[in-house]
Protein backbone atom coordinates (compact mmCIF):
# COMPACT_ATOMS: atom_id res chain seq x y z
CA UNK A 1 0.00 0.00 0.00
CA UNK A 2 2.76 2.43 1.02
CA UNK A 3 4.46 1.75 -2.30
CA UNK A 4 1.46 3.15 -4.14
CA UNK A 5 1.03 6.25 -2.02
CA UNK A 6 1.46 9.48 -3.95
CA UNK A 7 4.72 11.18 -2.99
CA UNK A 8 4.73 13.89 -0.33
CA UNK A 9 5.59 17.48 -1.28
CA UNK A 10 6.40 20.34 1.08
CA UNK A 11 4.58 23.57 0.27
CA UNK A 12 6.07 27.07 0.55
CA UNK A 13 3.98 30.19 -0.02
CA UNK A 14 4.94 33.80 -0.74
CA UNK A 15 2.05 35.73 0.78
CA UNK A 16 2.83 38.91 -1.15
CA UNK A 17 5.68 40.16 -3.27
CA UNK A 18 8.49 41.55 -1.18
CA UNK A 19 8.25 38.72 1.35
CA UNK A 20 10.07 35.39 1.19
CA UNK A 21 8.34 32.06 0.75
CA UNK A 22 7.34 30.41 3.99
CA UNK A 23 6.62 26.78 4.79
CA UNK A 24 2.86 26.13 4.95
CA UNK A 25 2.52 22.34 5.18
CA UNK A 26 2.53 19.43 2.79
CA UNK A 27 0.40 17.72 0.15
CA UNK A 28 0.44 14.40 -1.62
CA UNK A 29 0.43 14.41 -5.43
CA UNK A 30 1.25 12.07 -8.29
CA UNK A 31 3.51 14.62 -10.01
CA UNK A 32 4.88 18.16 -9.72
CA UNK A 33 2.04 19.83 -11.59
CA UNK A 34 -0.61 18.16 -9.46
CA UNK A 35 1.37 19.10 -6.36
CA UNK A 36 1.12 22.77 -7.34
CA UNK A 37 -2.62 22.50 -7.96
CA UNK A 38 -3.24 20.62 -4.73
CA UNK A 39 -1.13 23.13 -2.79
CA UNK A 40 -3.17 25.98 -4.28
CA UNK A 41 -6.48 24.32 -3.37
CA UNK A 42 -5.35 23.34 0.12
CA UNK A 43 -3.37 26.36 1.27
CA UNK A 44 -4.58 29.41 -0.70
CA UNK A 45 -8.38 29.28 -0.74
CA UNK A 46 -8.48 32.87 0.53
CA UNK A 47 -5.78 34.53 -1.55
CA UNK A 48 -3.08 33.69 0.97
CA UNK A 49 -0.41 33.63 -1.71
CA UNK A 50 0.98 35.15 -4.89
CA UNK A 51 3.51 32.38 -5.48
CA UNK A 52 3.88 28.75 -4.45
CA UNK A 53 6.92 26.48 -4.33
CA UNK A 54 6.50 22.74 -3.97
CA UNK A 55 9.39 20.37 -3.45
CA UNK A 56 9.49 16.63 -2.89
CA UNK A 57 9.86 16.08 0.86
CA UNK A 58 12.54 13.45 0.26
CA UNK A 59 14.63 16.04 -1.61
CA UNK A 60 15.03 18.30 1.40
CA UNK A 61 18.34 18.09 3.25
CA UNK A 62 17.95 19.12 6.88
CA UNK A 63 20.24 19.61 9.85
CA UNK A 64 19.80 17.12 12.66
CA UNK A 65 18.17 18.55 15.81
CA UNK A 66 20.04 16.04 17.97
CA UNK A 67 23.32 17.53 16.68
CA UNK A 68 22.19 21.13 16.70
CA UNK A 69 24.36 22.35 19.57
CA UNK A 70 27.51 21.02 17.92
CA UNK A 71 26.35 22.14 14.49
CA UNK A 72 25.72 25.74 15.52
CA UNK A 73 28.58 25.87 18.03
CA UNK A 74 31.01 27.81 15.78
CA UNK A 75 28.80 30.92 16.10
CA UNK A 76 28.44 30.63 19.89
CA UNK A 77 31.69 32.30 20.99
CA UNK A 78 31.93 35.05 18.38
CA UNK A 79 30.18 37.78 20.24
CA UNK A 80 32.40 40.33 18.48
CA UNK A 81 30.15 39.82 15.46
CA UNK A 82 27.48 41.84 17.23
CA UNK A 83 27.55 45.67 17.29
CA UNK A 84 26.87 45.70 21.04
CA UNK A 85 30.33 44.15 21.63
CA UNK A 86 31.99 47.54 21.03
CA UNK A 87 32.14 50.30 23.65
CA UNK A 88 31.76 53.71 22.09
CA UNK A 89 31.68 56.88 24.22
CA UNK A 90 28.26 58.53 24.48
CA UNK A 91 29.59 61.77 22.98
CA UNK A 92 30.15 60.09 19.63
CA UNK A 93 27.06 60.34 17.47
CA UNK A 94 25.83 58.46 14.45
CA UNK A 95 27.58 55.21 15.27
Amino acid sequence: MTKQEWPLYEVFIRSKSGLSHRHAGSVHAADDEMALNNARDTYTRRNEGVSIWVVRSDSIVASDPAESSAFFEPAEDKIYRHPTFYDIPDEVDNL
Partner: peptide, 26 residues
Amino acid sequence: AKIQDEAGHGLYLYSAAETLGVSRDQ
Protein backbone atom coordinates in the same frame (compact mmCIF):
# COMPACT_ATOMS: atom_id res chain seq x y z
CA ALA B 1 -17.05 26.79 0.39
CA LYS B 2 -17.58 25.58 3.95
CA ILE B 3 -17.42 21.92 2.97
CA GLN B 4 -14.23 22.61 0.99
CA ASP B 5 -12.80 24.16 4.15
CA GLU B 6 -13.61 21.00 6.12
CA ALA B 7 -11.68 18.98 3.54
CA GLY B 8 -8.84 21.49 3.77
CA HIS B 9 -8.79 21.23 7.56
CA GLY B 10 -8.60 17.47 7.29
CA LEU B 11 -5.63 17.82 4.94
CA TYR B 12 -3.75 20.31 7.16
CA LEU B 13 -4.16 17.87 10.01
CA TYR B 14 -3.14 14.74 8.10
CA SER B 15 -0.09 16.69 7.00
CA ALA B 16 0.72 17.57 10.64
CA ALA B 17 0.26 13.95 11.75
CA GLU B 18 2.56 12.69 8.99
CA THR B 19 5.44 14.70 10.48
CA LEU B 20 5.29 12.23 13.39
CA GLY B 21 6.13 9.30 11.13
CA VAL B 22 2.71 7.81 10.32
CA SER B 23 1.75 7.52 6.64
CA ARG B 24 -1.36 9.03 5.11
CA ASP B 25 -2.38 5.62 3.80
CA GLN B 26 -2.13 4.13 7.26
